[in-house]
Amino acid sequence: MSLILILEQVLNGLQAGVMLFLMAAGLTLIFGVMGLINLAHGSLYMVGAFAAAGVAAATGSFLLALVAALVAAAAAGVVVETVVMRRLYARDHLDQVLATFALILIFSELTRWAFGSFPLYLNPPDWLSGPVTLPGGIRYPVYRLALIGIGLAVGLGLWALTRRTRLGIRIRAGENDREMIAALGVDIGRLYTLVFALGAALAGLAGALVGAIQSVQVGMGEPVLILAFVVIVIGGIGSIRGAFVGALLVGLTDTLGGIFLPELFKLVTDPATATQAGASLSSMSIYILMSLVLIWRPTGLFGAKA
């Protein structure tokens, strides 16, 4: 296996990782500030992708489609937060799991009712399609490079938001001591709605960006949701930094495992068995990674000590 191929695969792992980060960041933020497990986060990802596909089909503009994804997902987030989530903050995780599981069912069926059962069309814009040649001779799709760029920019933006702005200070304060900041005159209800909308918008953005190179269909959110949960658990729930490291770890493990495990097995067995056994083990690899991390550090890499 050539060095160039390995480098290209590392880029692929990186790209998968930063997109996961967009999902995981919202999830971990919502948990950190409100203490809420939101299984319906994948549905917001789906809402973003469908809104983007709808607007792209109507206007032909990819940028407008991205805006629509952000707005639609944030709006759905605000509705969900004010109607349902608000009543769940004081409940235990079990109620939250069940309520948001119910929301997944509702979102999926409503989307199917509105858009039908066939996958929708959404493509990257012409000015981002096709490959470029990187230094070292790697031919790599421009769009995927753009995804890496957007993911890193959002990560940087989130860091700046939480560290450098008044809203960020309130968010961090909300994570530490809810009662105190409420006593200091911060409208905690509005802060929660805002944080939830922000997380939802990030999920919607991820859905639209990834939807352009995948399939926009009902149920697209669930596999990503599970991966995003793996990410935030590895990183430590509530930690944005942990979500970033966890996302890259999961992205790289998933991508590189699929390539190198079959090669490893080929050293000890015949090629046909090796590809199958390798593929089986690689689909389990991120879950193995997660359980190893948790056995080693029961609250994740950057999680607060229990």
Partner: peptide, 9 residues
């Protein structure tokens, strides 16, 4: 582990 971590593991 405990809490959410237990759910996820």
């Amino acid at each position: 582990t405990a809490g959410v971590y237990f759910i996820m593991i």
